[in-house]
Amino acid sequence: MHISEGVLSPAVLAGGAALAAAGAAIGLKKMDYEAIPRVAILSAAFFVATLIHVPVGPVGAHLVLNGLMGLLLGWVAVPAILIALFLQALLFQFGGLTVLGVNTVIMAAPALIAYYVFQPLLRQQGPIASVAAFACGFTAILLSGVLMAAALLFSGEAFWPAAQLALLAHLPGMIIEGLVTLFVFQYFKKTQPALLAKLYG
């Protein structure tokens, strides 16, 4: 999921940086005092999850948890992802500082989209909400793959091979992310109904 430095064209880099900055600003505005511990924990989870690497597919895959972050955080997912990616770029040279904006958009935009699309369904009772939670994790990765392919396309790499590769590589990831999102959603529903009621009341 992390695009390396020097792959993308300057226009894509600038666009990504602008979008990420705007999204992070909105997210920070929306982050209230009570949300901070939740944001910090999910940011930390994202930070570790994107480091754990399973050798599947051509370049390997890792959890992203962006669907889960969208589900639990909404707009605040953007600064949470931005901070984790910033530290990864700084500490491990994953991605890089110039690509930070684009990488943030690739992972945070699907989180937001999933949040808005599945919000009404997550409010429902019973199996519909569970299916929506699974779909939330699943589609977030799908959209991330598409966005990544698009970023590569605008920088000259052929779109279809890259997109197919990205989708194929992320297919196991989509299913696993869907399941993880589902389980965490169910867990919170049982143990922290107040938290979810606030978001999906």
Binding site: H2, V48, T50, L51, I52, H53, V54, G60, F92, F94
Partner: peptide, 11 residues
Amino acid sequence: LVSATPAWAHR
């Protein structure tokens, strides 16, 4: 933490 030890993302 334990699972994080041996495995890292793709650089």
